[in-house]
Amino acid sequence: MNCDQSLQALVDLARGADPAGFDLVRAHLARCPSCSRRFHDEQRLTATLRALADATAANAPPQALEARLMALFDQQVAAREMAPIAPTKTRVARWMQAAAALAIVTAGAVTWLHVNRGAKPAEAPPAHARSVQDAAPSMPAPAPAARTAQPVRQATASPAAASRSQRRAAGRATNAPRTVLAEGFVPLPGAAGLPDFDHGEIVRVDIPLPRLPLYGIDIPPDAADKPVMADVLVGQDGQPRAIRLVTTGSDEAIRKGSNR
């Protein structure tokens, strides 16, 4: 082994490694003063660096850093858990938009067909629609499209949930005359300011009895505080127009209308 060959090995040897050819390196160092001196210098350099390493061994980041990182971790986990919801919402929104567009096109097509089929005799309206037509001059007769309208829908939501505007209108209610419809429908106090009724649906709801006066229905002073079933006539714009109590027997008329 010559000096060039021993040079790399003696550095590794001085660093505490166990290089291959250890015996050969030792033998070379024993007979080469220059390489031996170099070896001792390397050993001292190693000791110096170890002293620096020992002096800095206790250095550590501040405790506050751990708290910051844990807070960041929590935020990231929370963000990751919320992330999958967004695309779903977007997909739902897209489907809703597509469904709305389809409904508009369908409604337009049906209207056009009815306009162009004006000579044809219209089908007999269902009981609930007929009652509106007959008894409420302020509400024009429902269009034929309403005659094929949906059957009565059961709803357990309170009327307030069905329409906030209805409640607001009730709050503004004046002493305007209330007309009781032939089929038991009472126009709601705020319905007078709404666009003319064209078509809609009847929604069955439970109403606390003490709230009925708000919707234009008088109750006995000693009426019990219990919910009663009522039908709400909702117009084409989603606004409620009239209400009737199911217990008046009008439910039979609704059932007949639905079965047609």
């Binding site: 010559n2 000096c3 060039d4 007979r31 080469c32 003063p33 220059s34 390489c35 170099r38």
Partner: peptide
Amino acid sequence: VAGGRCFA
């Protein structure tokens, strides 16, 4: 200084 060299 150039790297030391020996020929032992």
